[in-house]
Design a protein around this nucleic acid. Sequence first.
DNA 1: GCCGTTTTCGGCCCGACTGTTTTCAGTCG
Length: 570
Amino acid sequence: MKNNEVAQALNEMAVLLEIQGKDKFKPKAYSRAARSIASLGEDIEAIASRGELTEIPGVGKALAEKIDALLKTGSISQLEELRKEIPVNVRELDAIPGVGPMTMKLLYESLGITDLESLEKAVKEGKLTGLKGIRQKTVNQIVEGIQLVRAGLGRTLLANAFPVAQSIESALKHIKSVRQINVAGSFRRRKETIGDIDILVDATDGEKVMEAFVHLEGVTDVLAHGPTKSSVRLSTGLQLDVRVLPPESYGAGLQYFTGSIDHNVHVRTIAQKQGLRLSEYGLFKGEEQVAGKEEGDIYKALGLDYIEPELREDKGEIEAAQRHELPNLVSLAQIRGDLHTHTNKSDGANSIEEMLDVAASKRYEYYCISDHTKSLTIAGGMTEEQILDAIDEIDGINSSGRWKLKVLKGAEVDILANGELDISDDVLERLDVVTASVHTKMKDTKEAITDRVCAALQNRHVDILGHPTGRLLLKRSEYEVDLERIFETARAAGVTMELNSHPERLDLNDGNLRAAKRYGLKIAINTDAHRVGELHNMQFGVFQARRGWLEPIDVINTYPLKELLKLFRK
DNA sequence: GCCGTTTTCGGCCCGACTGTTTTCAGTCG
């Protein structure tokens, strides 16, 4: 069972409990736990098998038992009972923007509406108007909401949000009264996918900014339009929220609009306990503002070390900040090379020379060419002979001195279905860096894939395991694989895990990275670039590494060449 | 239902916007 399925079940319970209306806080506890599990990034079944469910923030004894039951039997008895009592299809109706538990309750109790279909029917028959608190505008909202659900409200890859954020930012910057502008929210936390873009503006004339904002090019819907806060939807479906705050509150606003909801609740609770009140307007003692102009002052005033945006998920960073034990996160400037790249010798678009020109412009100290190998015929994988030729060519390049960086000889070798590699050992022997990857039979059973990968890791020439879970964000989920067993095997075999920086992969994910670090593994942040432009994807890998709490010591391509090569000499 | 250096009981973040009201409930982030 996947984390998302568990999260959905708990979220459904939260909504049903809220409809039931017996307890005000129980639903909050359930939805908190649901959010927490949805963003775990580590297989919940693995956590459950270790008996560590209660270590998940927001999961206590009672919820751990329910999750265990769900994982073992496929259902939670309390959820089944709630469904009988309130037969509303929460998953369908909850997806409609503007429709929450109270609306669902009203629709169900007065009209017997239980799902999208019956809601649509009731709307068509004009039955909604006249219900308590519902008139034409609300009906219109619901109609539009249903259309959106049918169209599929999607998330966007972080990389795809970048150009949008930049163009909005520069459009708003041109307004006269705008002094500062920042993109906050999950974008600033560098989540791998984002649901909307939150923009914070410091301006004297908020209404003017709002006016310009709702009339931006590409805006198809204005969802809200107030004096300090507005929301719009673009033709691409992406939602943008903008908020204006005065300069004395700007730091507090940045703090508030960057943190995840759980991070914010946690920080505000800490403020409360110190007799303070924290909002986007600042940190207050009574009427007096203690902090607010600068974001860092908020944390400082609460006795916390500054927490980097990528960590603000309430996954232990606040406790670490209290203990002054936050990690010194790896940064892009510390990256000395790229260890997984392709050329037109297999399925890349550019020549070695073209790739090296761009790599050199990044002032890399080393750079590894690692084209596909022969069994991946669709990618024009190289035979042993071709690899040997490439080795000679790279030797020539290195001795030519044309580029300052050291070119490393590598290959992205295929892990065959039986766990063997598709290139003979005597050729692998001559390579500097061997990355082994799974590209085929990805729908095999968990045991089969795990066995296969573990077998490959035993080959003493393997240095790095490429994109360890094989997922493609928003397209294909990770293949079934027991990462814990792979981590253990990799540690014993001295194999490094890849963090593939391609915006669609970002594989390993943040939770996996933290787990890998716990296992004592090292990480290589690689672009897997197939064309020169993709060499710039390194930044996305670094973002992900930071979300995974990685420090330079954890990331082998921050090491100087000598130390790196020592690592690969087994 | 969770959680804890004020607490193992008694709290549980805070504010904007909308649509419906005529002071507020619901939703959202």
